[in-house]
């Protein structure tokens, strides 16, 4: 059975303004999110992964950003909603978990009040019902003594606990979509594992789709159903998680996987991707964007206007350079 599509992004462009010129940080991204699915977007810093999700919930400053393309949620294009319109969706339909839990909680308000806030705006529960719901949520995210925690302030909690509170806030109005932007980057490994397991458990209960943004391929492998690999504002490869790790095709994906320290890399040098990520303003807008970093691959292997093509069912790759790709030290055929 085909799962229900809850979000559809079509040809999304997000441009930032520098000195009266706009530069696309996200350059034509398409994807769909289905119910009960974890869709991961991986990429290095500056590739535009957070920019995508920020435009889904309208967090960009309209004076400096231009969002074009379509973001279809509930049969409406929300890409250019006004602030008032976004307020109706944010929190209610789309929950958000940020990277830094301390910065996203208000230090002056008690935890209970902060979890209650979206309930006040978006539901007609009365005071007692809200209190009940807050305790229920804290239980759900695995906080053992919710009655105490509601009366505490953010600084009294550990990083892992704070992240749990953020998750509780995101879940409070039973959203259809949860966006988790690097939810565990600021946490220790053991806490990270706990939070990720919690998200996995919750996902089965809450019946939502999750967009997971991360740069950690290990996290992706353990969490995601589908993965998009992003480079310089574009998706270069999209596939099911299993397919992507078993059979990575795009040179960028393959290089990334090679550069992770793994057990079989002992005593060997790690793979280094040559060159640097181009800055937004110097980004070549034509041709394969990864080409400058794999210069040993002849130009004829690349496409002039690389597109994301389906190479097997559900597996999309951009450009043709993957077909005859080899690492520099392997020698080619």
């Amino acid at each position: 059975m085909e799962a229900e599509k809850i979000l559809e992004v079509k040809d999304l462009h997000v441009a930032f303004r520098f000195q009266d010129k706009y530069y696309d940080a996200v350059d034509g991204v398409d994807f769909t999110l289905k119910r009960n699915e974890i869709f991961a977007i991986v990429g290095e810093s500056g590739c535009g992964k957070s920019t995508i999700v920020n435009s889904i919930v309208g967090l960009h400053d309209k004076n400096f950003t231009r969002v074009s393309g379509e973001i279809i949620y509930d049969n409406a294009n929300i890409a250019n909603y006004s602030e008032e319109e976004f307020n109706k969706i944010r929190g209610r339909h789309i929950g958000f978990i940020f990277q830094d839990p301390l910065a996203s909680l208000n230090p002056l308000h008690k935890i209970g009040k902060q979890i209650e806030e979206p309930l006040i705006y978006h539901t007609d529960l009365d005071k007692n019902q809200r209190e009940e719901r807050v305790l229920e949520l804290l239980n759900q995210v695995g906080i053992n003594n919710p009655k105490r925690v509601v009366n505490q302030f953010p600084h009294e909690l550990s990083g892992g606990m704070r992240q749990r509170v953020l998750i509780a806030i995101a879940l409070s109005c039973k959203p259809n979509i949860i966006i988790a932007d690097e939810p565990t980057t600021a946490l220790d490994v053991t806490i990270q594992a706990q939070i990720l397991d919690l998200l996995t458990d919750l996902q089965k209960e809450i019946d939502a789709g999750i967009i997971l943004i991360t740069h950690d391929l290990g996290v992706v492998a353990q969490m995601a159903d589908r993965v998009a690999v992003m480079y310089a504002g574009q998706f270069v490869e999209v596939a099911n998680a299993e397919e992507l790790f078993d059979n990575p095709l795009h040179p960028y994906t393959r290089s990334l996987l090679q550069s992770i320290p793994q057990s079989d890399s002992l005593g060997k040098d790690l793979h280094v991707i040559r060159g640097m990520v181009p800055s937004l303003r110097n980004l070549p807008r034509k041709g394969c964007r990864f080409a400058p970093r794999i210069q040993w691959i002849p130009e004829s292997e690349h496409e002039e206007n690389p597109e994301l093509r389906e190479v097997s069912k559900g597996h999309f790759v951009r450009c043709t350079c993957w077909k005859n790709f080899h690492f520099e030290d392997e020698g080619g055929n």
Binding site: V189, A193, D197, L217, G218, A221, Q222, I260
Partner: peptide, 22 residues
């Protein structure tokens, strides 16, 4: 616990790692 918490790049055994962590 630390070692169990490393996210391994091994999609097929996702469930297994989850059980080990538990």
């Amino acid at each position: 616990r630390l070692i169990a918490a490393i996210p391994e790049i091994d999609v097929k055994n996702k469930e297994k790692y989850y059980m080990i962590r538990k």
